[in-house]
Each structure stands twice: as structure tokens, then as C-alpha cells.
């Protein structure tokens, strides 16, 4: 097949490179992905349905969808619409693509905040990548970390955890209060809580 070229940002932020993704696909899926990516790059009218159907055409659909988004580079209004009209899987792809598209925080942060209001752990995890680490307000970010502890999302999925937690006294207070609440209820304190608490106690 013709090599699919990586966009300038691909490969950062944990998204699969096109070559890596294509290598794991069978012939039909590879051909489909190549065609879909060309349509996306040309912003052809059919590219959005390709974004929707990636799951049944192309194995690791998160990576495939991110690839289509980085090829199409939709403007913020279109990106927001793709998120709002997307299934959970499509929303996840938009979230994963935010740092690669370098979306203006005025448009990208509301999408991250929307995902953080859900209880779908796959959306929470996808929302807490590099983009959130860079752009979320302190209050929102602290609540996101706490929500990971509530919903069982491993904090290893939170990008920039160590650097943002370091010396964060307010986060430490929230973690201690949560630990006290768990203890008062006779419930176990998650290991991840101790881990983040230790990070907050490191010096800035």
C-alpha cells in the first residue's frame, strides 16, 4: 500500500503512528483506512461517515479515528459538532485528538469538561491526557483527579499527574478529606490516593 504519511503532530500524546496502526490491520481494513484518510485530508463530504463507521471497518478504532481527525483537521465548530453528535467511541477519539490538533482551549476545554461530567470511565481517561494537563483550571483538574479515585480510573492515566500535583496543598486537603470519609465509612482508601498524596507532598 502507499505509505500513509504522519501529520506533523502525530506520534505525540500517545496516538498510534499511521504506519504502526496499518501494520496491525488486514488488507481490507488497510485499504479502507487509506481511502478514508485521503477523504479526510481532502475534507471530502463523505469523510464524517467514515469517522462514524471506523469501529466496524478498522480494528483499533480509537487510533483510526484519531488519524482521520488529524488528517481532516476540522475547524473548532466542526470538531465540537463531531463530539456532540458522536457515540462514546467517537467522543473519545475527539478527546484524544485535542492535543494533536492543538485546538484552541476556548473550544477544546468545554469538550474536556463535558467528558469529565460523565461517568463513563473510558471518556474520563481519554479526557485526562496532555491537553487537560496543559489547559484545565486548577479547580477542574483537582476534581478530575478525585473523580478518578471515585470511579476507579487508574491515576496512571492522568497526564502530567506528578508535575501538576507537586506542592498542591489544596489537592492534598481534598485527598485527605476523601480518605477520612472512606475511613469513617469503614471502606478501604484506594492505593492511588496515597500515591497522589505523596506527589502533592513533593516540593515544587
Amino acid at each position: 500500500m502507499t505509505a500513509v504519511h504522519a501529520g506533523p503532530d502525530t506520534g505525540q500524546g500517545g496516538a498510534a503512528r499511521p504506519e504502526t496502526l496499518a501494520a496491525g490491520l488486514d488488507e481490507d481494513a488497510r485499504r479502507w483506512l487509506e481511502q478514508a484518510r485521503a477523504e479526510a485530508a481532502a475534507q471530502a463530504p463523505g469523510w464524517e461517515p467514515r469517522f462514524a463507521e471506523a469501529g466496524r471497518r478498522c480494528g483499533p478504532a480509537d487510533d483510526a479515528r484519531v488519524l482521520l481527525l488529524t488528517a481532516a483537521r476540522p475547524d473548532p465548530a466542526d470538531l465540537t459538532r463531531l463530539y456532540r453528535q458522536g457515540t462514546a467511541a467517537e467522543r473519545r477519539a475527539v478527546l484524544l485528538a485535542l492535543p494533536l490538533l492543538e485546538t484552541d482551549p476556548a473550544h477544546g476545554v468545554p469538550l474536556v469538561e463535558d467528558a469529565l461530567r460523565t461517568n463513563d470511565t473510558s471518556l474520563l481517561a481519554a479526557a485526562l491526557g496532555d491537553y487537560a494537563a496543559r489547559h484545565l483550571q486548577a479547580h477542574t483538574w483537582r476534581h478530575a483527579v478525585l473523580k478518578c479515585l471515585f470511579t476507579g480510573v487508574p491515576v496512571s492515566r492522568v497526564a502530567g499527574l506528578a508535575s501538576r500535583s507537586r506542592g498542591d496543598g489544596e489537592l492534598a486537603r481534598m485527598l485527605r478529606a476523601y480518605a477520612a470519609e472512606r475511613t469513617a465509612a469503614g471502606r478501604a482508601v484506594p492505593d492511588d490516593l496515597h500515591h497522589v498524596l505523596a506527589l502533592t507532598e513533593e516540593e515544587r
Binding site: 461517568n119 470511565t121 473510558s122 481517561a125 471515585f150 476507579g152
Partner: peptide, 25 residues
């Protein structure tokens, strides 16, 4: 479904390994 759930292959009806460790409250 993300980090709290390990997908169970049920293509042939093999019993799932149980429910997720942390159903979301």
C-alpha cells in the same frame, strides 16, 4: 469500557469472568 473493565470474549458464549471490579456508583 476503559480501565476498570476487562473485556470478556463471549464470541462462543464462554462464561464471562465476572462483573467489573468497580461498577460506577
Amino acid at each position: 469500557t476503559g480501565p476498570t473493565h476487562e473485556g470478556n470474549s463471549i464470541l462462543r458464549g464462554a462464561p464471562a469472568t465476572g462483573t467489573a471490579a468497580h461498577p460506577v456508583a
